[in-house]
Amino acid sequence: MALMLQFRNIIFTTLFIVSITSSQSWGDVMKQGMEIFNEKAGCSACHVLKHAGSEGNIGPNLDMSKDSKDVAYVKDMVQNGLGVMPAFGEDGILTPEEVDIVSKYVANVAGK
């Protein structure tokens, strides 16, 4: 019984820590995501995304696209590119972590 209680406490403690960490890192993800979007990747030069304040008109308006709320779709596009859009991941322009962060950011704020 004591072992079970100890195990339960470990689980609760772990969940709490994960929860706090996740909460903090989500804010970081959004902040970093916008920075990557506007600066390192320069997505803003080609896309409209109201949340990032960007008004590029080469590629699709991300606030209007049906797919830009789908993080897997966005990540695939950022990783592999399409048409004139560079393959930010495949060509090493962004690190895998940065691809992940900017994709989560776009999917979360598109249309808002």
Partner: peptide
């Protein structure tokens, strides 16, 4: 949740179109 037509082609008939994006 499809939105309206982009300004540069606002003469299109919205109800005839599926909006994939403002470029498609």
């Amino acid at each position: 949740d499809a939105k309206g037509l982009p300004s540069w082609t606002s003469w299109k008939k919205r109800s005839a179109l599926i909006i994939h994006s403002d470029k498609g």
